[in-house]
Design a protein around this nucleic acid. Structure first.
Length: 592
RNA sequence: GGAGUCGUGGUGUAGCCUGGUUAACACGUCGGCCUGUCACGCCGAAGAUCGCGAGUUCGAAUCUCGUCGACCCCGCCA
């Protein structure tokens, strides 16, 4: 029999109708003669009633056999429940289906965990039995929400006259940032493809191809360690446009997010988004992805300690370092010496050598480095706007380390003391003007973002003289302290592109071998262009207020890049290896 | 590559610090009773050699070492 309705959609219009339902046994309540079954499908749950006075003996016998997660087909009549039997907790709680016929389409073994949002299950099991985990409302709703966001994005891009174009998965390995996943070629023994870290170069080539406005919901692969907010393979909304300015890209994204948040969550977000220069964000928040929902800033107080007796600070300043401070308002009595020790351990992860602090209570300083603050008391209080019961944490090191240390301590304090007042607010901001290069540990210049970003007009002159002073037309979109999108205006000039790549120390020959195709393309009328790429997984995570990216991915991998469901990755047979010309070392081949 | 946390019936936990009878609790499962339940109820039962390996000990879930796996973090992630 053909299904006539989804369980979760039964409503007053169905009353007295005969319906055919198909679904999973969610719960069974056998009262002896009367049997209640909660039947679940993708739209929700409806209660079935098996009443011996209303159906045959055979149907009752069959209903007795039902167990959790059996798949059944039911023919029955929709009736309104009597008032005392209404269940206000259920969306279909005013109705039930009086069963007349029942067929068991499939049985189920005892499942490893209950299909219930209230049951705690280890992530291990959830990943191994993902198809069961996905039956739970929480997962089902998240995956549906994700689809709705993507659907909304596709419609928006269509309205704005973008064309969606697929780019290849098997591509040439180019030295960009992350490690490539590699795929051996059978037809060209010894050669390898790489999986794309992003469609970056192809979307630029599409601009050369005059498509003008491109987008793609693109899968990307990076062979780097995962994190709670970072998955090995992930999805980007990849966008590229010709003849655009940074401002136009910002406006497009602001319109997109405004629409997506309105249509999928009914939330009005404020546009345009604030903009912050990278340098300012680093100085103020110690991060290039500022969490701005709580006002606690990094204050540079180097000048106060130039003549200090405190050797640690003084020597640091003499070596060109900085002293910065953050103030935790009104919590001095909540923080014990032991607690400070914990914070000290925490900041050591970020290469801090220690954690100086001082408490300000009853107009005097105590604890930590109180002795050294006393001589500069008035200026110190003024600069940090200190009030009673404030506690100050100091960072003393190179600017880079201090920003990182206090930036992270700041986030920890905000979280630990639950300082964000309204967590339902979404705070958007653009971080702009990133430096194009930074020095690696060996003192070589490396691209901070990637090699294809256009320098800003006012710093392009330093490309030849001082790469460290070159800023890029680079931007990140930050939502609630998370990097949600990243993009830039690109270089479209072969000569400048070569020069930029050259700064990283790549020889002319290597450049030709790795990027020859791009440089060649730039010779034939490459238009000025730029783009951006919001991370879809992380966006969904932020919108849903989740803290684990696995929860927004249907089939995620573990931190170790394992798929617990299928067992990937796995060994290959000798035959498969021979075919691609790969010989494993004895210990690694998985064969006996 | 490094650090931390965790691993005990089907599931989630307690027990471990301070080694010692039959490894406890809740949920689930199975059987019985039950005609308005809705996390149904009541009665009864089964189910774990405590991730794996070695060591210490008369004796190890418990202590030690190793190993595997998961999570979280640093490095890494244009």
């Amino acid at each position: 029999m053909k299904r006539t309705e989804y369980c979760g959609r039964i409503n007053k219009d169905n009353i007295d109708e005969q319906v055919v339902l198909k679904g999973w046994v969610h719960r069974r309540r056998d009262l002896g003669n009367l049997i209640f079954i909660q039947l679940r499908d993708r739209e929700g749950i409806i209660q079935l009633v098996f009443d011996p006075e209303k159906c045959s003996k055979e149907v009752m016998e069959c209903a007795k056999l039902l167990r959790s997660e059996f798949v059944i087909e039911v023919l029955g009549k929709v009736i309104a429940r009597t008032i005392e039997n209404i269940n206000p907790e259920m969306s279909t709680g005013e109705f039930e289906v009086l069963a007349e016929n029942l067929e068991i389409l499939n049985s189920s073994e005892l499942i490893p965990f209950h299909i219930d949002d209230n049951v705690n299950v280890s992530e291990n099991l959830r990943l191994k039995y993902r198809y069961l985990d996905l039956r739970r409302d929480f997962m089902k709703d998240t995956i549906w929400f994700r689809y709705k966001v993507l659907d909304c994005i596709r419609k928006f891009m269509g309205e704005k006259e973008f064309i969606e174009i697929e780019t290849p998965f098997l591509i040439k390995s180019t030295p960009e940032g992350a490690r490539d996943f590699v795929v051996p070629s059978r037809m060209h023994t010894g050669k390898f493809y790489a999986l794309p870290q992003s469609p970056q170069l192809f979307k630029q080539l599409l601009m050369v191809a005059a498509f003008d406005k491109y987008f793609q919901i693109a899968r990307c692969f990076r062979d780097e360690d995962a994190r709670a907010d970072r998955q090995t393979d992930f999805t980007q909304l990849d966008i590229e446009m010709s003849f655009v300015s940074q401002d136009e890209i910002f406006t497009l994204m602001e319109d997109l997010f405004k629409k997506v948040f309105k249509e999928t969550m009914n939330i009005d977000i404020k546009t345009p988004f604030d903009r912050i220069d990278y340098d300012i964000s680093m100085d103020k928040y110690g991060s290039d992805k500022p969490e701005r929902r709580y006002n606690m800033f990094l204050n540079d107080i180097t000048s106060l300690f130039e003549k200090s007796e405190f050797k640690v600070f003084k020597e640091n300043i003499e070596n060109g370092g900085v002293i910065k401070a953050i103030v935790l308002k009104g919590k001095s009595t909540d923080i014990s010496r032991k607690k400070v020790g914990e914070y000290e351990e925490f900041v050591k992860k970020f290469k801090a050598k220690g954690l100086a602090f001082v408490k300000y209570e009853n107009n005097s300083f105590s604890g930590g480095i109180a002795k050294f603050v006393e001589p500069i008391k008035q200026k110190f209080i003024e600069m940090l706007n200190l009030e009673d019961k404030d506690i100050v944490f100091f960072g003393s090191d190179s600017k880079k380390i201090v920003n990182n240390v206090l930036g992270n301590l700041r986030l920890k304090l905000i979280k630990e003391f639950d300082l964000i007042e309204d967590k339902s607010v979404f705070d958007f901001c653009w971080v702009t003007r990133f430096p194009l290069f930074e020095k690696d540990d060996n003192g070589n210049w490396i691209a901070m973002h990637h090699l294809f970003s256009m320098p800003t007009h006012d710093t392009v002159e330093f490309v030849d003289t001082d790469p460290g002073k070159v800023y890029g037309q680079l931007y990140d979109l930050v939502i609630n302290g998370n990097e949600a999108a990243s993009g830039s205006i690109r270089i479209h000039n072969a000569k400048l592109q070569k020069k930029i790549i050259g700064i990283t120390g790549m020889s002319e020959k290597e450049m030709e071998q790795k990027f020859g195709f791009l440089l060649e393309a730039f010779k034939y009328g490459a238009p000025p262009h730029g783009g951006i790429a919001p991370g879809i997984d992380r966006l969904i995570m932020i919108m849903k207020g989740l803290d684990n990216i696995k929860d927004v991915i249907a089939f995620p991998k573990t931190n170790n890049q394992l798929c617990l469901l299928t067992g990937a990755p796995d060994f290959l047979s000798i035959e498969q290896l021979n075919e691609i010309g790969i010989k494993m070392e004895e210990k690694n081949n998985g064969q006996e």
